[in-house]
Design a protein around this nucleic acid. Structure first.
Lengths: 212, 212
DNA sequence: GTCTATATCGGGATAGAC
DNA sequence: GTCTATCCCGATATAGAC
């Protein structure tokens, strides 16, 4: 019943290869889109043949979906951290920093979701209308509670969340534009810190929480 | 030297047809992306044959570029309206409303630019680094002036402009997500007005300009 | 699991008649 | 200007040897 070492090895390698393909797929799909990307390009980046890639993922669409699914949990996770027991200012500052860190460290993921949603999210729709919607609703209750206790200014919680998403993801999705205008990107530590702090100040400002 | 009526007629019709193709191209490209869109689909929507479309635009890329170029001026225009002689609160409220109106009435244009920029803006880059950058720089001077006169709170003007863009364009680019979460879209007058007013309040709030 | 060879197909583009 | 027919290429996917 024990599994021979060479088989375990092969499995582990297989998993590693699958992961490598998913990584390469993320890079290529987020740059060229589903249709603009070619299996060949992705295979090249992994250093395997097109045919070999199709051994691991039977079709291009299948690979594409797999790439998206692997990211979903990680992507939705940070919002869960918005805790009603914590101080509003600190909780929001932490959330903004987390989102900005994502924009810096996983810009391809952000762009892939962006492309997918802009183009209709044929694939992501159920996820948006289910888990995401529920999560946002839960967090809106927290925000409303804070508003009721007059701990933050009374802005519509849904529009507030949209604003935070828009502002933070903008630095990943529109980084080319940001770079064209400012000459900088989040990859530069100074600019990153500046963008984080500015975004935090703007959001806290709109909520009447300036810590100045 | 006079141009016969039938030739004028043909020219006008030709222009009308070109325009119809550009319109259809915008719709299809903004939904499927450059590579996902097919000339056939666009031709169908106009009610002409693929071959006939290629008579007006020699290649698919050519059509794509033409679609983008036609939109550029309209797209960059609103920012020009931010006038230093006017009242900061009123000027910003007007700008936000204009941008939100664009998001409602020209969501495809917003999405096409979004797709293009997310994917690297191979084509738009010069436009971003030239005219757009200059325009933003000019407006930042206005904002800095307002800050110097202590008429608005001291936020970095570049990040401020990015925020306004992000927040307003979000309603066009991510409308599917907005709809999945709130059940509404800018097409509904109530939701539109609500989104506009909320966005205005949030921005004015962060600038210390609440008119409450 | 990985390769070479090949089947297959959608779609961009051209030729030429009308 | 518009059509039909066709060429042609890139890219997905499959077959089968190793």
């Amino acid at each position: 019943m024990t599994v021979p070492a060479n088989v375990r090895r092969r499995r582990r390698d297989g998993e590693a290869r699958r992961t490598a393909i998913l990584d390469a797929g993320l890079e290529v799909f987020s740059t060229y889109g589903l249709h603009g990307a070619s299996i060949d390009t992705i295979a090249d980046r992994v250093g395997i043949s097109k045919t070999n890639l199709l051994y691991y993922f039977p079709t291009k669409e299948n690979l594409y979906v797999s790439v998206l699914q692997r990211l979903l949990d990680v992507w939705l996770d940070p919002l869960g951290g918005l805790d009603e027991t914590s101080d509003p200012a600190e909780a929001l500052k932490a959330y903004i920093r987390t989102k900005m860190t994502f924009s810096r460290d996983m810009p391809q993921a952000s762009r892939l979701f962006c492309l997918e949603i802009v183009q209709g999210a044929a694939l992501l729709r159920p996820e948006l209308e289910g888990p995401l919607r529920d999560l946002v609703e839960a967090k809106c209750i927290v925000l409303k509670k804070w508003i009721g206790e007059q701990r933050i200014a009374p802005h519509d919680p849904y529009h507030l969340i949209f604003s935070i998403w828009a502002m933070t993801q903008h630095y990943a999705d529109f980084s080319i534009q940001v770079q064209a205008i400012t000459g900088s990107s989040l990859a530069e530590p100074d600019f990153f810190e500046n963008a984080v702090v500015n975004t935090q100040r703007m959001i806290l400002g709109m909520l009447g929480l300036e810590t100045a």
